[in-house]
């Protein structure tokens, strides 16, 4: 195992940021950590980067404990924080050279590893990092995190705030890095990126909801998933759908509504109600759940469990 997180708890004053987080990442895997803002992803990454110590539980990187053996950990990891953290007043080239020297290496030594990425920003190598576009900044940050050929690469939301084209390019690069044998852990708030990972962990409010490969996760999800579309927009129907007898959960999904039913038999009942709304553009059909649907479903179950607990108290 490349990376082991063993029942990690972490609190900041009164807020519990991580609760019993427990998973492992295999050697050479591209592992995704999916969750909304404030789920505890960054805290988890800082623990992996040996910048924070868990309150309880253990975290080890290639067998090195992030608490006691942080010196070794810092040699073998490449870390890209969630916030752009390079020197804005240094040029592209100077930033890269600086991080190479900090790790006791040179740009030339590992150039083959970053070549594909760096060549895209090389035309701007004399430009100050502060004047780069979002996508170029991310490429530079990734180059800097890779320049010492780390064994484990941890990237905290590398594609947040980056345009769609750059995001796709970025994931292509991650795939290439994976082929170099570098274990990569990457977090993202975007569901569509989850499907590009070998395995993903879903995290919400500091707790892991599931760890699985993306297709299995989607399959394990709701069987009774339907989509509702309308030429007039579906937002207005959300509340009415939720009121329906057979509806278990309903949520907005792009410009459609996704609905899970309690049982297959409810399908007919729902159709009848929809007909009564007399909207010809309404389209109701059974669909195959995506990972996002699975995630939404898990979230709903989680909040149901929470409210039941509160009611029980």
């Amino acid at each position: 195992m490349s990376l082991i997180l063993d029942h990690i708890d972490k609190s900041f004053e009164s807020v519990q940021a991580l609760k019993q987080v427990n998973f492992e990442v295999k050697e050479g895997e591209l592992f995704g950590l999916i969750g909304p803002d404030g789920a505890g992803k960054s805290t988890l990454f800082r623990i992996m980067a040996s910048l924070l110590i868990p309150d309880s539980g253990r975290c080890s990187m290639l067998g090195y404990d992030v608490d006691k053996e942080y010196r070794q950990v810092r040699q073998i990891i490449g870390y890209m924080p969630g916030r752009f953290s390079l020197y804005m007043d240094l040029s592209v080239e100077e930033n890269l050279a600086f991080y190479a020297r900090v790790f006791g290496t040179t740009i030339q030594e590992n150039y083959d590893l970053i070549k594909d990425i760096y060549e895209q920003i090389a035309p701007f190598k004399k430009r100050l990092a502060g004047r780069l576009s979002g996508g170029m900044k991310q490429k530079l940050a990734l180059s800097c995190a890779l320049i010492h050929r780390p064994r484990i690469l941890i990237l905290d939301e590398p594609t947040t705030g980056v345009d769609a084209v750059s995001r796709r390019e970025f994931w292509d690069m991650l795939k290439k890095i994976q082929r170099e044998g570098i274990t990569t852990v990457v977090s993202t708030p975007y569901m569509d990126e989850a499907e590009l990972c070998d395995r993903v962990a879903l995290i919400q409010k500091g707790s892991l909801l599931a760890v699985a490969d993306p297709s299995a996760l989607a399959e394990g999800g709701e069987k009774l998933l339907y989509s509702l579309r309308s030429g007039k927009g579906v937002y207005a129907y959300l509340d009415q759908i939720r009121q329906l007898e057979g509806c278990r959960y309903a949520w907005l999904f792009g410009d459609e509504l996704h609905v899970t039913l309690r049982s297959a038999a409810d399908d007919a009942g729902v159709k009848k109600v929809l007909d009564s709304w007399q909207d010809d553009s309404l389209k109701w059909e059974s669909i195959v759940p995506s990972i996002e649907d699975r995630f939404m479903g898990l979230l709903q179950e989680e909040s149901d469990a929470d409210s039941e607990m509160e009611e029980g108290e």
Binding site: R46, A49, S50, L51, R71, R74, Q75, I77, Y79, P81, R83, F84, S85, L86, Y87, M88, Y99, V102, F103, G104, C144
Partner: peptide
């Protein structure tokens, strides 16, 4: 403030 310290700390420096 600029977050660069986070990277310096996570390095072998």
């Amino acid at each position: 403030e600029f977050g660069t310290m986070e990277l310096l700390l996570a390095s072998p420096l």
